[in-house]
Simulated scan of single mutants.
Amino acid sequence: MDYQLFKAINRLAGRNSMLDKYMIAVSKKYYFLLIIVLIYISLTGYIDRKVVKKALVSYCLSISIAYVLNQFFYKPRPFLEHQVNLLIPAKKTSSFPSKHTLFLFVVSSTLFFHDRIVGSYLWGLSVLTGISRVWLGHHYPFDILGSAIIGSMTSSVVERLENAKFSLK
């Protein structure tokens, strides 16, 4: 089923150059948009500045989980196993989990806990970015889904631990 979903999305790549350029831009640039959002929060205090710390802690936790998973589990990227529409080159590292997607969902989920409107908007853009990673031929849909779950769950755990710590005082 994962490969069938991959094919359904990836076969659309290469049919419309404007859409391909858009998906490439989403995949490459959205990552930086979230970094800018975090910097903005740090500098202006738009949302509690502790949110940036929580996002960084959550990301470190997510990357640690990804590292452990990669030590025991290697999943070849789609372009290594199948004929795909590969729009831009990619590393030959494990397809799961997607570190790119981990970061996006960590930040989006962390912000969601503090500003539901901003978090929802960014979470939607994170989903679009995940689709773009499949579109480009870099990941399978379940890689994106699994990374979204790991990123969101680590943010949730960090948020709950932080809230529990302050509620005990």
Rank of each mutant, 00 (worst) to 15 (best):
M1S: 06
M1Y: 08
F6G: 03
I9W: 05
L12Y: 03
L12I: 07
N16E: 01
Y22C: 11
M23C: 10
A25H: 13
K28M: 13
Y30L: 15
Y30M: 15
F32I: 08
I39C: 00
T44P: 01
K50I: 15
V51Y: 12
K53V: 14
L61N: 13
V68P: 03
V68H: 02
N70L: 06
Q71E: 14
F72G: 06
Y74L: 00
Y74T: 00
K75A: 09
P78H: 00
L80Q: 10
E81R: 13
L86A: 04
L86E: 01
I88T: 07
T93I: 10
S94V: 03
S98G: 02
S98E: 06
L102P: 09
F103C: 05
F105Y: 14
V107E: 07
V107N: 06
S108D: 09
T110G: 09
T110E: 13
F113V: 07
R116M: 09
I117K: 12
V118W: 12
L125E: 03
T129Q: 09
I131T: 07
I131D: 04
R133F: 15
H139N: 05
Y140T: 00
I150L: 13
G151L: 12
V157P: 02
N163H: 11
A164G: 06
K165V: 09
F166G: 10
